[in-house]
Nucleic acid binder design. Structure first.
Length: 261
DNA sequence: AACGCCAGTTAATAAAAGGT
DNA sequence: ACCTTTTATTAACTGGCGTT
């Protein structure tokens, strides 16, 4: 009598021997489940005439010209590989769970959402914490701002900073443009973080009226902007030439900061 | 060919909701 | 309160497909 069982196999052709073998193999992988097998749509069936495995689905009715044992072995190793993959994913999820507070009774989706939220929060906090500090950031940045002078000496103060990739000629370029301007550098500070650098200046200028000061601010901005553009162009061409400029993994604690005159 | 990823499907289980 | 049904979550298996 012909019958196709729920697993999609014709069990008439060989008295169910092959099916039993497959069931045995499959059941080894589902240790903790009371139901050992599931229906398999578009799975393999034995062709009664040829004794070959063919796809059970009408759409995929093509014969598979490989031996039964080989196919069964492939299925088994595939499901085992998938199981290992799931275990890897779950292990990492558990690691994440250990890093998140109030994690009890939190399903996977909620856990991931919580981790995302925490990372965003940490980023914001880190950003706020580094505000005002000379820590290089990921994006190129040029800032020029006048400072209030509370000393009463009438000195015009300017703070300028440049943040970019640390390329070989950067410092000499900066020094060159700074020296070409009618300004006096009171203080300068260079900080590095990985391949990034931030250079900050406290600048004053000769006495002058507002228009002179405006001119100085514009000149400093333009000069440093030129440097920044040059660095960006060099960095971009380096990328196009596939020169690896992998950023070093460093923490904020590795940030070095020093003064130069 | 082996491997890894993904989507679809199914079953088990727990929790919530609803009915008596 | 208890039972049943529904819903959500998770795990497992599989086929397909792209990458190595």
């Amino acid at each position: 009598m012909h019958c196709e069982n729920q697993y999609g196999f014709n069990i008439e052709s060989d008295g169910g021997e092959f099916v039993n073998q497959l069931l045995h193999n499959s059941s080894k992988n589902v240790e903790n489940r009371s139901c050992l097998l599931m229906p398999v749509k578009q799975s393999l069936v034995l062709d009664g005439e040829k004794g070959e495995l063919v796809k059970a689905s009408g759409r995929m009715g093509k014969r598979i010209g490989v031996s039964e044992t080989k196919t069964v072995e492939a299925l088994r190793s595939h499901s085992e590989a998938e199981r290992r993959r799931r275990e890897r994913i779950n292990a990492h999820l558990e690691s994440l769970r250990g890093l998140v507070p109030n994690n009890e009774k939190m399903d996977k989706a909620t856990l991931l959402a919580e981790v995302i939220s925490q990372i965003k929060q940490l980023r914001t906090t880190a950003s706020q914490a580094s505000e005002g500090l000379h820590i290089p950031i990921d994006t190129d940045e040029l800032k020029v701002e006048t400072l209030e002078n509370h000393t009463g000496d009438g000195m015009f103060l300017l703070r300028a900073s440049l943040c970019c990739e640390h390329l070989p000629d950067l410092l000499s370029d900066v020094r060159q443009v700074i020296n070409s301007l009618p300004i006096r550098v009171l203080k300068s500070e260079i900080s590095t973080l990985g391949s990034r650098v931030k250079i900050a200046f406290l600048i004053t200028t000769v006495e002058g009226n507002d228009s002179v000061r405006e001119f100085v601010v514009g000149s400093v901005r333009a000069a440093l902007s030129n440097v920044l553009e040059k660095v960006s162009a060099l960095a971009e061409s380096a990328e196009q030439l596939f020169i690896p400029r992998k950023r070093q993994r460093v923490s904020c604690l590795d940030s070095s900061s020093y003064l130069f005159e």
